[in-house]
Design a protein around this nucleic acid. Structure first.
Lengths: 190, 190
DNA sequence: TAGTGAAGCGGACGTTGTGTCCATTTATCT
DNA sequence: AGATAAATGGACACAACGTCCGCTTCACTA
């Protein structure tokens, strides 16, 4: 940290990045993400417009950065964690565990996810690709026919808009939603 | 048509409505709906901005108007048509038929649906409420536990973004997608 | 510790799309 | 034809976007 060798981030840059992330997290938490403008974030962070755009081209990029560590942690557990989330359990049980973990993640960070994944951009994030690969592996392991089309069908209910609607408008509990998702594991039976 | 008694639409109004709908349909078909501005539609229809906004407050309203007759027709068939789409068949078969019909509708009009249902606004349209009620009835008939949460889970894969992604990016066929959806009917077994 | 090159900063600016407002036009009724 | 109210359309004010560039701050160096 004491020496600067050309690949490290400059001190003022690091400070501003922290400010931006902190301010964005606060704003995303307190109101609907699509009502938070880039201007708002820049002002709340105490940086200029240009500084903000230098790092994050849009709201989605900021939300992705905020989500990053949570997603990484879940991805890590999926790959190398204990069963049933990690390898070792039967595909149907692993899928159910995955659903439960995703409900947890949506519950804790749905405002962030909503900020990052608006409609079709959802499919373009790296995270979606990861969830997709994971479910695809489970389908293959279960020998389910026609896995290509089924993958996205099984992931669709995890769209943040859907979760948000179920929680907020319908007043369902996370447990109820997780229960319904667990029911989807029946389709794995070949 | 020859007499005007205060509840009929004025002739110029009717003419402009037709122009707007026609122009909007053309524009939605030829490029991505979110790239079509209200200005574009007004200009293409040969009407002024104010005229357009008088009737349709936003793009979604126009797309809904365009979709209306197609949706109505399907709704009619669900309520009073022949089985398995209409009443009479077992719930699982009716659900599969519903999925097949929705795939057809998405295939024919996905650009319109994309124009009308952007993210969370999807749940606010009258059509979504109808699909929801229909699936809910099927779940009740099948005696599936926890139907409240399951309804939206089963409808989620029909989100236009998902269908578009499967068709365009993944290159799947409508038949493949319909097949995967048909697999979801397994969850109906109580 | 003063000098130097470059990375980083920030706010002014031009652009685009939105939604409203109201003077003018136009259709229908009498 | 004249009266009246609905309908029109473009000008306007506004909000957010994304870029550009002169100035500042940092980290290295001698």
């Amino acid at each position: 940290m004491s020496t600067y060798n050309g690949r490290m981030e400059r001190a003022d840059a690091a400070r501003n990045r922290a400010r931006i992330l902190e301010a964005a997290a606060r704003l995303f938490a307190e109101r609907s993400p699509q009502d938070v403008t880039m201007d708002d974030i820049a002002r709340a962070a105490g940086v200029g417009r240009g500084t903000l755009y230098r790092r994050y081209p849009d709201r989605a990029a900021i939300a992705v950065a905020l989500l990053d560590e949570h997603e990484r942690e879940l991805q890590e557990r999926l790959l190398r964690g204990e069963p049933p989330l990690g390898p070792g359990a039967p595909p149907a049980e692993r899928l159910a565990a995955f659903y439960a973990a995703m409900v947890r993640l949506l519950e804790d960070h749905s405002h962030l996810v909503l900020g990052s994944e608006v409609g079709r951009t959802r499919f373009e994030t790296g995270a979606y690709g990861f969830w997709r690969a994971h479910v695809r592996v489970l389908l293959d392991a279960a020998g389910t026919p026609g896995p290509d089309a089924l993958v996205d069908v099984l992931l669709a209910p995890l769209a943040p808009e859907v979760y948000r609607y179920q929680r907020t408008v319908l007043g369902l509990t996370p447990a109820q939603i997780a229960g319904a998702l667990a029911g989807l594991t029946k389709v794995l039976g070949s």
